[in-house]
Amino acid sequence: MIRFESVQKRYPGGTVAVEDFSCTIPSHTATVLVGSSGSGKTTLLRMINRMVDPSAGRVLIDDQDVATTDKVALRRSIGYVMQASGLLPHRTVQDNVATVPMLTGTPKREARAAALDLLETVGLDRGLATRYPSQLSGGQQQRVGVARALASDPNILLMDEPFGAVDPIVRGELQTELLRLQSELGKTIVFVTHDIDEAFLIGDQVVILRPGGEVAQAGTAEEILAAPADDFVERFIGADRGRRALRLEERDGTRIVVDGTGRAAGVLQAAEGDPAVPDGPAKDRA
């Protein structure tokens, strides 16, 4: 469990990244911090592995204040994935994945063998092991980044907009892959994004942040969609533009789901074993 207690981050010069943030992140679940730029979400994430030290307040992991831990040891015990993958360009894929185990003294041969298995875990071909990061596609690099973060089998996985730099199709694949991994591994994931749809997809708990790290609303996707706390949340999730209020319409004989602006959002399909909403009537008319 990770707990933020009245955390503040003030930079010399007076810029306040985070004013007063408190939050509990339960173990073995995915919590997404979502907000636009300036919301302090990345700053908060980096406080967990002490890349940033708070000006006031505490961050606790399993009731231990991280400020009392050794920075380097703490970072080695926490997986970290960032947007531009942050792979070491001068190391092969295999050695990148083996980075942390080799830092903590695992024999090279053993660490490399484990790295090969991890490549498969994240859906990469072992044949890529001897390539350099520049020889991989963006999506493949992100998968290597995830494999590297998993290499020391950490309890906590920090992900800083990990899929922000890849195209939408690859992003979709990576998101699905992460959900599959999480269902197998059950890590405590803290995930930062500015994309509310990604937040709702990944997060067991979603924390919507206002500028300055103020919590606008925290809860499950269902809770937030059903009852947005205020105008800010409504705007953020798109409810104010009618994006979240869907209704059925028939157009050219097909039953289409449209949102509040009248824009088509999808097609209505029958749930399995439910003949009540077939596209039958539409065909009859056509």
Partner: peptide, 28 residues
């Protein structure tokens, strides 16, 4: 690493399947 080649273009999902995606399918 400095003289290693660049990445091939991002594999197109419609054409030849991404070897990564294929491996993922196998693993899952």
């Amino acid at each position: 690493w400095a003289s290693a080649g660049k990445a091939p273009a991002e594999p197109s999902p419609a054409g030849a399947p991404d070897p990564a995606a294929a491996a993922a399918g196998g693993a899952a």
